[in-house]
Design a binder for these strands. Structure first.
Lengths: 210, 210
DNA sequence: TGTACATCAGTGAACGCGCGTTCACTGATGTAC
DNA sequence: TGTACATCAGTGAACGCGCGTTCACTGATGTAC
């Protein structure tokens, strides 16, 4: 059978070119943000890295914030993928220790963060400079931490004594993890193991307290 | 006996006025940094808050970074004071549990951070935007964390299994503490107790491991 | 103590740099007939 | 299939805003005699 492209679906050369340029600009932005930081990046730094003219940028993004927001969306999609893979790899039986469930969450976070460290750093910087963007990213981050919060809430219900409310505890663990990942060189699995030991022990402390 | 002011020591009215203006500008900077963030603060925002003319700023500081550096110095002095008080209040006997020594360090950090949250936040922002300033502040922060690092190094020597090297572990604990302090409302002592429980348990986990 | 001059903290208008954003233009691609 | 016109992605010089920084000036304070 011969595939018939309906006129509506077939992208024109022009459209393909535009899509390519958008992708080039996003890739260039990541490179430049990583090299000199989001705040110190000028629009022309991005376009020069992408080999385009300055004016071209505005055919694809409203401003520097919007290209970062686009990178954040890409990151979110990939993070969901990583989380999905981890979900599939999990054993079917129900009873999982605090240590093992902590390790699962930490591993997903570690891999996502390590793969997009530059984007996370850029988001942090943009949020510091612009409260409106900060609010957008707060929502985004809350979504990312949702599995942690659900897990910690469940632990709390089972009598584990968290240092503070589940949402803040999740943010604390994330901050700890970020700090560790930033200086960790070597096997990620070993790092994940060490961090898991630290976090799981901190959480387990409360189990026998009452 | 009549006190005789030597000409060298007696400050003139002019000098007193200048000192006052320096102090006013620093106080105004803290207020404005806290209100709108360091990066979004213009020089005139500071002078307006202090009730001075824009040009006056440059009689006292070279630029926005330098006034922040001055605030950091003030903060360091106060932090040393808090740490000194804590040192004095410590029991004389030698043997102290991990939990108790952790509590001591966390209490000092908590009180210092809570009293200067705005300055810490400003330093973080300035460091993100300017690598040179970041380097200066890295040194500053290393000094602040020095007691932690010494303590953690000692723990490691005694066989405690840290998640990673002492310097990074100290930074991880600091990051955890900052995240918690930022959302904690209520009795600081209770917060310190909860955080101590979490951290001490995480560190104690390794004690029996070998 | 009084006078004349020097100094200096503070003033605020104006200058000028850096950079985000625009816009008239180009040439390639798409469309109508 | 060929031609004439329309559209659109991309270009880069130029515009203009925001703000850091300067500087000539003021008036109060300090100093010399």
């Amino acid at each position: 059978m011969i595939a018939i492209d309906t006129p509506v679906n077939r992208p024109t050369m022009r459209q393909l070119k535009a899509v390519q340029t958008t992708a080039d600009l996003k890739a260039a932005a990541r490179v430049v943000f990583a090299r000199q930081g989001y705040l110190n990046t000028k629009i022309v730094d991005i376009t020069r890295e992408a080999g385009r003219a300055a004016g071209s940028f505005y055919n694809h993004f409203e401003n520097k914030e919007e290209i970062l927001a686009a990178l954040a969306v890409d990151l979110g999609a990939e993070a969901d993928e990583i989380a999905g893979d981890a979900q599939d790899a999990r054993p079917e039986s129900g009873a999982v220790s605090i240590h093992d469930s902590a390790r699962g969450h930490i591993a997903v976070f570690w891999r996502t963060y390590a793969a997009h460290r530059d984007v996370f750093a850029a988001i942090e910087q943009a949020a510091l400079a612009n409260p409106v963007f900060a609010e957008r990213m707060r929502t985004f981050r809350a979504e990312q931490l949702q599995p942690w919060i659900a897990w910690l809430t469940e632990l709390a219900d089972r009598g584990v004594h968290l240092p503070t409310d589940p949402a803040t505890t999740a943010a604390m663990i994330a901050a700890t993890a970020e700090t560790m990942i930033q200086t960790w060189h070597g096997d990620p699995d070993a790092g994940i193991d060490n961090l898991t030991g630290f976090v799981a022990a901190g959480l387990s402390a409360g189990v026998n307290q009452h």
